[in-house]
Protein backbone atom coordinates (compact mmCIF):
# COMPACT_ATOMS: atom_id res chain seq x y z
CA UNK A 1 0.00 0.00 0.00
CA UNK A 2 1.04 3.57 -0.61
CA UNK A 3 2.82 5.10 2.37
CA UNK A 4 0.91 8.34 2.16
CA UNK A 5 -2.42 6.50 2.25
CA UNK A 6 -1.40 4.50 5.30
CA UNK A 7 -0.33 7.58 7.08
CA UNK A 8 -3.37 9.58 6.11
CA UNK A 9 -5.60 6.91 7.52
CA UNK A 10 -3.61 6.80 10.76
CA UNK A 11 -3.77 10.56 11.07
CA UNK A 12 -7.48 10.47 10.49
CA UNK A 13 -7.92 7.78 13.09
CA UNK A 14 -6.05 9.67 15.74
CA UNK A 15 -7.78 12.88 14.70
CA UNK A 16 -11.05 11.35 15.73
CA UNK A 17 -10.03 11.38 19.37
CA UNK A 18 -7.74 14.40 19.33
CA UNK A 19 -9.56 17.08 17.42
CA UNK A 20 -7.92 19.80 15.36
CA UNK A 21 -4.34 18.75 15.96
CA UNK A 22 -3.35 17.28 12.62
CA UNK A 23 0.11 18.94 12.36
CA UNK A 24 1.10 17.66 15.79
CA UNK A 25 -0.21 14.17 14.99
CA UNK A 26 1.84 14.04 11.81
CA UNK A 27 4.95 15.21 13.63
CA UNK A 28 4.40 12.62 16.36
CA UNK A 29 4.14 9.89 13.73
CA UNK A 30 7.21 11.25 11.99
CA UNK A 31 9.10 10.99 15.25
CA UNK A 32 8.13 7.37 15.77
CA UNK A 33 8.90 6.43 12.17
CA UNK A 34 12.33 7.95 12.61
CA UNK A 35 12.79 5.55 15.55
CA UNK A 36 12.85 8.39 18.02
CA UNK A 37 11.35 8.97 21.39
CA UNK A 38 8.78 11.67 21.77
CA UNK A 39 8.31 14.27 24.46
CA UNK A 40 4.99 16.04 24.67
CA UNK A 41 5.03 19.15 26.73
CA UNK A 42 2.06 21.24 27.66
CA UNK A 43 -0.20 22.34 30.44
CA UNK A 44 -2.43 19.77 32.10
CA UNK A 45 -5.59 18.87 30.23
CA UNK A 46 -4.40 19.68 26.75
CA UNK A 47 -4.64 16.12 25.44
CA UNK A 48 -1.12 14.87 25.96
CA UNK A 49 -2.22 11.51 27.31
CA UNK A 50 -4.98 11.20 24.73
CA UNK A 51 -2.46 11.66 21.94
CA UNK A 52 -0.03 9.14 23.35
CA UNK A 53 -2.77 6.53 23.87
CA UNK A 54 -4.05 7.05 20.37
CA UNK A 55 -0.57 6.71 18.90
CA UNK A 56 -0.05 3.44 20.70
CA UNK A 57 -3.40 2.12 19.53
CA UNK A 58 -2.93 3.14 15.91
CA UNK A 59 0.47 1.49 15.71
CA UNK A 60 -0.93 -1.63 17.38
CA UNK A 61 1.91 -1.83 19.81
CA UNK A 62 1.87 -3.38 23.21
CA UNK A 63 2.02 -0.51 25.60
CA UNK A 64 2.22 0.26 29.25
CA UNK A 65 1.71 3.41 31.12
CA UNK A 66 3.62 4.71 34.10
CA UNK A 67 2.47 7.70 36.04
CA UNK A 68 5.63 9.34 37.28
CA UNK A 69 5.47 10.60 40.83
CA UNK A 70 8.05 11.97 43.17
CA UNK A 71 8.32 8.68 45.08
CA UNK A 72 8.73 6.47 42.02
CA UNK A 73 11.95 4.44 42.14
CA UNK A 74 14.02 3.05 39.27
CA UNK A 75 12.99 -0.48 40.27
CA UNK A 76 9.34 0.47 39.78
CA UNK A 77 10.07 0.96 36.09
CA UNK A 78 12.82 -1.55 35.36
CA UNK A 79 11.58 -4.46 37.50
CA UNK A 80 12.93 -6.31 40.47
CA UNK A 81 13.98 -9.83 41.50
CA UNK A 82 11.76 -11.36 44.05
CA UNK A 83 12.66 -14.37 46.19
CA UNK A 84 10.43 -17.27 45.37
CA UNK A 85 10.05 -19.44 48.44
CA UNK A 86 8.67 -22.34 46.35
CA UNK A 87 11.80 -23.03 44.28
CA UNK A 88 14.19 -21.18 46.58
CA UNK A 89 15.58 -18.75 43.98
CA UNK A 90 15.21 -15.18 42.82
CA UNK A 91 12.84 -14.61 39.93
CA UNK A 92 12.98 -11.44 37.89
CA UNK A 93 9.70 -9.62 37.64
CA UNK A 94 10.09 -7.29 34.65
CA UNK A 95 8.89 -3.74 35.17
CA UNK A 96 6.62 -1.78 32.87
CA UNK A 97 9.55 -0.76 30.69
CA UNK A 98 9.48 -4.18 29.00
CA UNK A 99 6.97 -3.14 26.41
CA UNK A 100 7.00 -1.79 22.89
CA UNK A 101 5.60 1.57 23.77
CA UNK A 102 6.00 3.11 27.16
CA UNK A 103 3.87 6.06 28.13
CA UNK A 104 5.76 8.00 30.75
CA UNK A 105 3.28 10.45 32.13
CA UNK A 106 4.56 13.64 33.74
CA UNK A 107 8.15 12.57 33.56
CA UNK A 108 9.34 15.74 35.25
CA UNK A 109 7.44 14.93 38.43
CA UNK A 110 9.81 12.18 39.41
CA UNK A 111 13.29 12.44 40.85
CA UNK A 112 16.35 12.72 38.61
CA UNK A 113 17.42 9.27 39.70
CA UNK A 114 14.35 7.63 38.22
CA UNK A 115 14.45 9.89 35.18
CA UNK A 116 17.97 8.86 34.37
CA UNK A 117 17.13 5.17 34.74
CA UNK A 118 14.44 5.60 32.09
CA UNK A 119 16.52 7.77 29.84
CA UNK A 120 19.41 5.32 29.97
CA UNK A 121 17.09 2.58 28.79
CA UNK A 122 15.92 4.88 25.98
CA UNK A 123 19.45 5.50 24.79
CA UNK A 124 20.73 1.92 25.06
CA UNK A 125 17.63 -0.09 24.15
CA UNK A 126 18.46 -2.33 27.07
CA UNK A 127 18.42 -2.22 30.84
CA UNK A 128 20.79 -3.53 33.47
CA UNK A 129 19.05 -4.84 36.51
CA UNK A 130 21.00 -6.46 39.32
CA UNK A 131 24.06 -6.92 37.17
CA UNK A 132 22.24 -8.59 34.32
CA UNK A 133 21.64 -6.91 31.00
CA UNK A 134 18.22 -7.45 29.52
CA UNK A 135 17.18 -6.33 26.04
CA UNK A 136 14.03 -4.38 25.55
CA UNK A 137 11.49 -5.52 22.96
CA UNK A 138 11.63 -4.17 19.41
CA UNK A 139 10.43 -1.65 18.45
CA UNK A 140 10.81 0.32 21.65
CA UNK A 141 9.33 3.76 21.92
CA UNK A 142 8.92 6.10 24.79
CA UNK A 143 6.32 8.79 24.68
CA UNK A 144 6.84 11.02 27.66
CA UNK A 145 4.68 13.89 28.70
CA UNK A 146 5.61 16.71 30.95
CA UNK A 147 4.25 19.92 32.30
CA UNK A 148 6.13 23.08 31.43
CA UNK A 149 8.94 23.51 33.84
CA UNK A 150 7.69 26.57 35.62
CA UNK A 151 5.11 24.49 37.42
CA UNK A 152 5.96 23.81 41.01
CA UNK A 153 6.99 20.39 42.29
CA UNK A 154 8.86 19.36 39.17
CA UNK A 155 12.39 18.23 38.39
CA UNK A 156 13.24 19.72 35.02
CA UNK A 157 15.09 17.35 32.74
CA UNK A 158 18.69 18.41 32.13
CA UNK A 159 19.70 19.29 28.56
CA UNK A 160 21.69 16.11 28.16
CA UNK A 161 18.56 14.06 28.82
CA UNK A 162 16.27 16.25 26.77
CA UNK A 163 18.62 15.49 23.90
CA UNK A 164 17.54 11.81 24.04
CA UNK A 165 14.13 12.77 22.77
CA UNK A 166 14.03 13.12 19.02
CA UNK A 167 11.18 15.59 19.14
CA UNK A 168 9.37 17.72 21.58
CA UNK A 169 5.82 18.71 20.75
CA UNK A 170 3.56 21.29 22.23
CA UNK A 171 -0.13 20.77 21.72
CA UNK A 172 -1.63 24.10 22.60
CA UNK A 173 -5.30 24.95 22.85
CA UNK A 174 -7.57 23.43 20.22
CA UNK A 175 -9.00 25.71 17.54
CA UNK A 176 -12.50 27.03 18.45
CA UNK A 177 -14.41 24.83 16.01
CA UNK A 178 -12.61 21.71 17.26
CA UNK A 179 -13.28 22.63 20.84
CA UNK A 180 -16.97 23.18 20.02
CA UNK A 181 -17.14 19.74 18.42
CA UNK A 182 -15.53 18.24 21.49
CA UNK A 183 -18.06 19.94 23.76
CA UNK A 184 -20.99 18.82 21.63
CA UNK A 185 -19.80 15.24 21.55
CA UNK A 186 -19.70 15.00 25.28
CA UNK A 187 -23.28 13.86 25.66
CA UNK A 188 -24.04 12.69 22.17
CA UNK A 189 -24.32 8.94 21.89
CA UNK A 190 -23.95 8.95 18.10
CA UNK A 191 -20.56 10.56 18.18
CA UNK A 192 -19.27 8.75 21.20
CA UNK A 193 -15.54 8.48 21.36
CA UNK A 194 -14.33 5.30 19.84
CA UNK A 195 -11.13 3.76 20.81
CA UNK A 196 -8.77 4.16 17.81
CA UNK A 197 -8.21 1.03 15.82
CA UNK A 198 -4.89 -0.17 14.54
CA UNK A 199 -3.97 1.31 11.15
CA UNK A 200 -0.32 0.42 10.81
CA UNK A 201 1.00 -3.07 11.38
CA UNK A 202 4.55 -4.07 12.03
CA UNK A 203 5.33 -4.84 8.36
CA UNK A 204 4.07 -1.48 7.27
CA UNK A 205 6.17 0.17 9.97
CA UNK A 206 9.22 -1.62 8.58
CA UNK A 207 8.25 -0.60 5.05
CA UNK A 208 8.11 3.02 6.09
CA UNK A 209 11.48 2.70 7.73
CA UNK A 210 13.01 1.25 4.57
CA UNK A 211 11.49 4.06 2.54
CA UNK A 212 12.99 6.60 4.92
CA UNK A 213 16.44 5.09 4.57
CA UNK A 214 16.24 5.51 0.80
CA UNK A 215 15.34 9.18 0.84
CA UNK A 216 18.02 11.26 -0.83
CA UNK A 217 19.44 14.40 0.75
CA UNK A 218 21.29 16.43 -1.88
CA UNK A 219 24.39 18.56 -1.42
CA UNK A 220 22.23 21.66 -1.63
CA UNK A 221 19.99 20.43 1.11
CA UNK A 222 22.80 19.36 3.43
CA UNK A 223 24.32 22.74 2.80
CA UNK A 224 21.10 24.44 3.84
CA UNK A 225 20.76 22.26 6.89
CA UNK A 226 24.30 22.99 7.94
CA UNK A 227 23.76 26.68 7.55
CA UNK A 228 20.64 26.50 9.71
CA UNK A 229 22.54 24.66 12.40
CA UNK A 230 25.53 26.97 12.15
CA UNK A 231 23.25 29.95 12.59
CA UNK A 232 21.99 28.66 15.92
CA UNK A 233 25.59 28.25 17.08
CA UNK A 234 26.78 31.69 16.00
CA UNK A 235 23.73 33.79 16.61
CA UNK A 236 23.51 35.88 19.72
CA UNK A 237 19.96 34.70 20.31
CA UNK A 238 20.96 31.24 21.42
CA UNK A 239 23.25 30.50 24.26
CA UNK A 240 23.74 26.92 23.10
CA UNK A 241 23.25 25.96 19.47
CA UNK A 242 22.16 22.69 17.89
CA UNK A 243 24.61 19.87 18.61
CA UNK A 244 25.90 17.49 15.93
CA UNK A 245 23.45 14.92 17.34
CA UNK A 246 20.75 17.53 16.92
CA UNK A 247 21.82 18.03 13.31
CA UNK A 248 21.57 14.29 12.70
CA UNK A 249 18.12 14.26 14.31
CA UNK A 250 17.08 17.12 12.06
CA UNK A 251 18.19 15.24 8.96
CA UNK A 252 16.50 11.99 10.09
CA UNK A 253 13.22 13.75 10.73
CA UNK A 254 13.37 15.70 7.48
CA UNK A 255 13.97 12.45 5.60
CA UNK A 256 11.09 10.75 7.38
CA UNK A 257 8.88 13.72 6.66
CA UNK A 258 9.80 13.48 2.96
CA UNK A 259 9.07 9.75 2.95
CA UNK A 260 5.74 10.31 4.66
CA UNK A 261 4.85 12.62 1.79
CA UNK A 262 5.91 10.10 -0.74
CA UNK A 263 8.96 11.99 -1.89
CA UNK A 264 12.28 10.37 -2.69
CA UNK A 265 14.28 13.43 -1.76
CA UNK A 266 14.29 16.02 0.96
CA UNK A 267 13.34 19.59 0.14
CA UNK A 268 13.91 22.61 2.37
CA UNK A 269 10.27 22.68 3.50
CA UNK A 270 10.76 19.30 5.16
CA UNK A 271 13.57 20.71 7.24
CA UNK A 272 11.66 23.86 8.03
CA UNK A 273 8.57 21.93 9.11
CA UNK A 274 10.31 19.58 11.50
CA UNK A 275 12.76 22.18 12.79
CA UNK A 276 10.75 23.61 15.71
CA UNK A 277 9.89 20.16 17.04
CA UNK A 278 13.40 18.76 16.62
CA UNK A 279 15.42 21.77 17.65
CA UNK A 280 13.19 23.41 20.22
CA UNK A 281 14.31 21.43 23.23
CA UNK A 282 17.96 21.32 22.17
CA UNK A 283 18.41 25.05 22.07
CA UNK A 284 18.88 27.36 24.99
CA UNK A 285 17.77 30.83 24.10
CA UNK A 286 19.96 33.48 25.57
CA UNK A 287 18.98 36.24 27.94
CA UNK A 288 15.37 36.98 28.57
CA UNK A 289 14.09 34.55 25.95
CA UNK A 290 14.78 31.73 28.37
CA UNK A 291 11.74 29.73 29.37
CA UNK A 292 9.44 31.42 26.93
CA UNK A 293 8.32 28.83 24.45
CA UNK A 294 6.69 31.23 22.05
CA UNK A 295 9.71 33.43 21.87
CA UNK A 296 11.69 30.32 20.99
CA UNK A 297 9.36 29.56 18.12
CA UNK A 298 9.82 33.12 16.92
CA UNK A 299 13.55 32.79 17.18
CA UNK A 300 13.50 29.59 15.17
CA UNK A 301 11.30 31.22 12.58
CA UNK A 302 13.81 34.02 12.38
CA UNK A 303 16.54 31.48 12.00
CA UNK A 304 14.64 30.01 9.05
CA UNK A 305 13.96 33.45 7.60
CA UNK A 306 17.50 34.65 7.90
CA UNK A 307 19.32 31.61 6.62
CA UNK A 308 17.24 30.90 3.52
CA UNK A 309 17.42 27.75 1.42
Amino acid sequence: MHIQVIIDSAVEEIGRTLLGKEPQIRLALCCLFARGHLLIEDLPGMGKTTLSHALAAVLGLSWKRVQFTSDLLPADILGVSVFDAADGSFNFHPGPIFTQLLLADEINRTTPRTQSALLEAMAEGQVSVEGETRSLPQPFFVIATQNPIHQSGTYPLPESQLDRFLMRLELGYPPPHAEREMLERRYSAALEIQYPRQCIDYDQLEMIRVAVSQVHASENLLDYLQRLVAYTRQSAEFEVGISPRGALALLDCAKTWAAMHNRGHVVPEDVQLVLPAVAGHRLIPSGDYAGDGHALVDLLQRNVDVVGP
Binding site: H216, A217, S218, N220, L221, G264, H265, V267, P268
Partner: peptide, 9 residues
Protein backbone atom coordinates in the same frame (compact mmCIF):
# COMPACT_ATOMS: atom_id res chain seq x y z
CA UNK B 1 13.40 21.17 -6.48
CA UNK B 2 14.27 18.01 -8.33
CA UNK B 3 17.50 19.33 -9.78
CA UNK B 4 18.59 21.01 -6.58
CA UNK B 5 17.50 18.40 -4.08
CA UNK B 6 16.57 15.28 -6.03
CA UNK B 7 20.05 13.89 -6.56
CA UNK B 8 20.04 10.65 -8.51
CA UNK B 9 16.29 10.67 -8.88
Amino acid sequence: NQLAYGGAQ
